[in-house]
């Protein structure tokens, strides 16, 4: 009995959608737009965060040794770091090389360095991670290295890293707020659209209740319609996202230099399932709210 009742309700839901093409289309397109904007925003956010992580991973640390440190002490320190931190490539920069680099960097003004003694420059040890390190890893590493003998300072771009982290946090907060906003708006819009459909069928509901239908029985076709509309909306949104990924973004990157760094998170099968499930859930919730309100009144 449950099977044929469920089958009948599903059949009726599909027939109802078919009989009211315009309201159904409006609901589907509304949901498609809301899901496209929401998922697109999340995808852009995911891309931006990946970009920030990649920038953060480009971590180079420089150890500045005390002025009194000799080349031999510098070499010994570099060797010790190499042994203790296999995850880093280590290079000692001697005073001569430091001066040469300085001259190269200063180009036309290099002559200003003519009177400077080599001994005025400190020895440095340059470190590069072999893999990706998080900002927290880099901070921890810098703190460890700063405690080593002859090390007077550790430079690792603290300021820009802090700003990068702040930006990342801001994006996360803005992302959560925007997602909640888009989600709420989508549910409200869907609920209102479905409420119109419910209102258009108030006679049917009245008759259903008159012949002894329970509220659950009255509600079920509308919920199924909401789910079907949500799934259709999610499918359209997904097609839009794929089009942006595959067609629009590559063309924009080719046409405009400033968009070359722009990226979206990849679309994987899990996203497809999540978007469809989310679309169905939004449709279900929207229709539940619409029908519940109608049944109450």
């Amino acid at each position: 009995m449950i099977f044929h009742v469920a089958w009948r309700l599903l059949r009726r839901a599909v027939m109802n959608l078919w009989r009211t093409p315009l309201p159904s289309l409006v609901a589907v397109l509304t949901m498609a737009l809301a899901l496209f904007l929401g998922a697109g925003f999340l995808s852009a956010l995911s891309g931006a965060r990946a970009l920030l992580r990649a920038w953060g991973a480009e971590a180079n640390l420089t150890l500045y040794l005390a002025q009194s440190a000799t080349e031999a002490q510098g070499a010994a320190l570099a060797e010790r770091v190499r042994l203790e931190h296999a995850e880093l490539t280590v290079a000692l920069v001697g005073r001569e090389e430091a001066l040469t680099r300085l001259r190269t960097d200063m180009r036309d003004l290099a002559s200003a360095l003519d009177g400077i003694s080599v001994s005025a420059l400190p020895l440095t040890v340059e470190l590069s991670p072999r893999g990706q390190l998080t900002s927290a890893d880099v901070r921890k590493l810098a703190a460890q290295l700063a405690r080593m003998p002859d090390v007077v300072d550790v430079e690792y771009g603290r300021e820009w890293r802090d700003k990068l982290e702040e930006l990342g946090r801001g994006l996360r907060t803005a992302g959560s707020a925007a997602t909640a906003l888009i989600l709420g708006a989508a549910i409200l819009v869907v609920a209102n659209t479905i409420r119109l459909a419910v209102y258009a069928r108030r006679d049917e509901i009245e008759i259903m209740k008159l012949v002894g239908a329970t509220d659950s029985y009255v509600r079920m076709p509308f919920l199924l319609e909401g789910i079907l509309q949500g799934l259709a909306g999610a499918l359209i949104a997904l097609c839009g996202l794929v089009a942006v990924h595959r067609v629009l973004l590559p063309r924009a990157q080719a046409a405009f230099a400033f968009t070359s760094g722009a990226t979206l998170g990849p679309i994987v099968p899990a996203h497809l399932v999540a978007l469809l499930a989310f679309g169905g859930a939004v449709g279900l919730l929207g229709s539940w709210l619409a029908v519940a309100r109608f049944l109450r009144t």
Binding site: V5, D203, I207, G212, A213
Partner: peptide, 24 residues
């Protein structure tokens, strides 16, 4: 009368049995 305009006569009459879970 309160009949459903989009349903046939048979469906309108059968409507009261649908909610009881009767088979087609």
């Amino acid at each position: 009368f309160k009949l459903l305009p989009h349903r046939t006569v048979l469906e309108n009459v059968g409507f009261a049995l649908e909610v009881l879970g009767a088979s087609d």
